[in-house]
Nucleic acid binder design. Structure first.
Lengths: 239, 239
DNA sequence: ATCAATTTCAAACAGGTGTTTGAGTATTGG
DNA sequence: CCAATACTCAAACACCTGTTTGAAATTGAT
């Protein structure tokens, strides 16, 4: 699969003091989980690629699930901090006024796309994995994913509601959800697009993708409201 | 827009003479694969839920993979035929003139959403599974998925290009891809949305979802083009 | 009713999974 | 320098996976 594992480890440096066994496992795990999926990738594949003993995973992380969780967390906490920082900056600039929708979208999705474009740091692999994982039915993954996202989503939801006072809350939440889907596909697109593709399309340029997705997201977010958006009387369902 | 859901369910129903062992396996498989994922669901879970012997799967389908493939095909061929039929109708009406983008989106995504809303016939479970699977890294799934989709995608791509002569081809393909992502999340949304949700949002009404997604998709599709859409010189990368 | 084909069933198979063990080896602090 | 801690390693553990087998039951046509 990999032509040269040593070269890979070297290229895929950051976040932790490399060559430490822990870090080598995490790096190999990220790559393999992305390539083969969360369920299909075995510990023996990971330890093999990382060049460490099989038992090292359980020694350093406790279990397979704990490894997965830590692999997600080390990237996700950084990503979400960055998102909040971007939002903070915009809000500081706005001095209490509502942000422009484009700024909010930029803070949330732009930061993620920029991380996804970071091929060297391995961010690209991770974002592809993350996009897929968001709808995965595995309980424990969805559990800590929700936990890790809760605060960030709340902030961005509030900002969007403030920025679009004429749009009903429910509408905003759904559109945020749709945007997540578009981003997920955008990131894993380089692989999946061969289904849509007839060969003309191989522009994986990150900057172009960013511009494309951004236009699409803003267009969807600012689209005219659906006609049937007026709610039926909201009585409780009969038990 | 939804003329009659009962009629739809009826038309969508049987596909096979129910209560046959084959059909019971397929139904149970659909439900369980949706709930637990393609990789995690075991044959023993399926045969257990279907109330048939373990060996029945290999007897009737040959292998686990063959079961998965047939499970996808029986729904997917019908869905895609329906999509093409809808597109044919619109094109017949247009009499050679380009379709309106809304019609094309309606034919592709509207039909899918209507299938996803068909709770009785099990269409909902299937569409949730399908949306997740589209980006899955499993080789054999992606293989026959691409095969099953190829003709349909080609038709819709052509229709979109004809309908939007001012938009570059690559742009259209990407936006189609983004729309697929939004739809995927829209369908699996009832489950995934608790991440975005704070409790206010439990409107899983299919009709409302349809209207919401439709507005979003059209908005994204018709968004102003990104500025950087002019291509850099397309020389080959140096090896 | 009979025979042959089809379908079911319990049991076993070979192979892969995450995890544990206990003896080894490095590394570190006093 | 030595003891104590941290880490590595090969082997084994118990369990679960998809698939196969050969006999039993069911079905359908003559």
């Amino acid at each position: 699969m990999f032509t040269d594992m040593a070269e890979f480890s070297q290229r895929n440096q950051p976040i932790e003091s490399r060559n430490d066994t822990r870090a080598r496992i995490l790096d190999a795990a990220e790559l393999l989980f992305t390539a083969h999926g969360l369920e299909t990738t075995t510990l023996r594949m990971i330890t093999g690629a990382a060049g460490v003993n099989l038992a090292a995973v359980n020694y350093h992380f406790g279990s397979r699930e704990a490894l997965i969780e830590e692999m997600f967390r080390r990237r996700l906490t950084w990503l979400n901090q960055e998102r909040l920082r971007a939002l903070d900056d915009f809000e500081a600039m706005a001095q209490g006024a509502p942000l422009k929708p484009r700024q909010i979208v930029e803070a949330f999705f732009g930061v993620a796309l920029r991380m996804a474009a970071d091929v060297n740091g391995g961010g690209r692999d991770f974002m592809r994995l993350l996009g897929r994982t968001y709808t995965e039915p595995s309980d424990f993954v969805r559990g800590f994913l929700a936990e890790e996202y809760a605060a960030v989503i709340a902030r961005f939801k509030a900002a969007l509601i403030k920025a679009l006072p004429d749009v009903p809350r429910a509408e905003i939440l759904w559109r945020f959800h749709f945007m997540l889907g578009a981003m997920s596909y955008a990131i894993s697109g380089a692989d999946a697009l061969h289904i849509v593709d007839d060969g003309t399309l191989h522009d994986t340029d990150a900057e172009a993708l960013y511009a494309r997705l951004m236009s699409f997201l803003i267009g969807g977010l600012r689209a005219p409201l659906p006609e049937i958006s007026v709610k039926k009387p909201r009585y409780k369902k009969a038990a």
